[in-house]
């Protein structure tokens, strides 16, 4: 029963090897790509293993941007980084951007927004972020770019890549609607940063 699904995943992993070898971005790199664009021309500081942050100004708010350190293929440690920044900076909003699994009939590259920590993996980073956010009574917003499991580990497609501007517009809208000038905001780009520099 599950053999076709295993074959699909094995085929995707096999094809992904060429993509990683050439340092080309994969579908999962959309989070670091979106936040990395906001980080350009700002000083980057190490905050956890393979994880960097930068400070920027978005609509008069202090934005702390967090993502894995590219262009190597790593997801960093967003859990440790966000936990430390929440305790240190006492922000009023946390926005997380990640790739998310789409349903069979949904379009690739579609952007959805919601509430909660947008992060996959085995749950360690998610727990750390949710624990720190709950202790600080911090609202967590999620913006996700939909894609299939195969697309997430394969070469980034045009539909996924072109969602960058849409997500930037949503970030700006959430910040203007949910925060006041001079507030601090943490924006996290979750995912594998292969082929993306900040």
């Amino acid at each position: 029963m599950i053999i076709p699904f295993l074959m699909l995943q094995a085929d995707a992993l096999n094809k992904a090897m060429a993509t990683f070898k050439k340092n080309q971005p994969i579908g999962d790199a959309i989070g670091p790509m979106i936040v990395g664009k906001l980080m350009l021309e700002h000083d980057k500081h190490d905050i956890a293993v393979d994880t960097v942050y930068a400070e920027s100004d978005i609509s008069g708010r202090k934005a702390i941007l967090v993502t894995a350190k590219g262009p190597a293929g790593t997801v960093g440690q967003p859990g440790n980084a966000v936990q430390e920044l929440i305790n240190k900076e006492n922000p009023s909003l946390l926005i997380m951007i990640d790739a998310a699994l789409k349903l069979e009939g949904e379009k690739t590259g579609e952007v959805a927004e919601g509430i909660g920590a947008a992060i996959g993996g085995i749950g360690v980073d998610k727990f750390k972020i949710e624990e720190a956010a709950t202790n600080s009574n911090l609202p967590v917003y999620a913006i996700v770019v939909k894609q299939s499991l195969v697309e997430a580990i394969s070469l980034m497609t045009k539909e996924i890549a072109e969602s960058v501007d849409t997500v930037h517009n949503i970030i700006n809208r959430i910040i203007e609607e949910r925060t006041n000038p001079d507030d601090k905001i943490i924006i996290v780009g979750v995912g594998n940063t292969i082929g993306v520099i900040q």
Partner: peptide, 10 residues
């Protein structure tokens, strides 16, 4: 077309 050494934001 992509060339070796191309990176996003380079």
């Amino acid at each position: 077309e992509f060339k070796d050494g191309d990176l996003v934001h380079k």
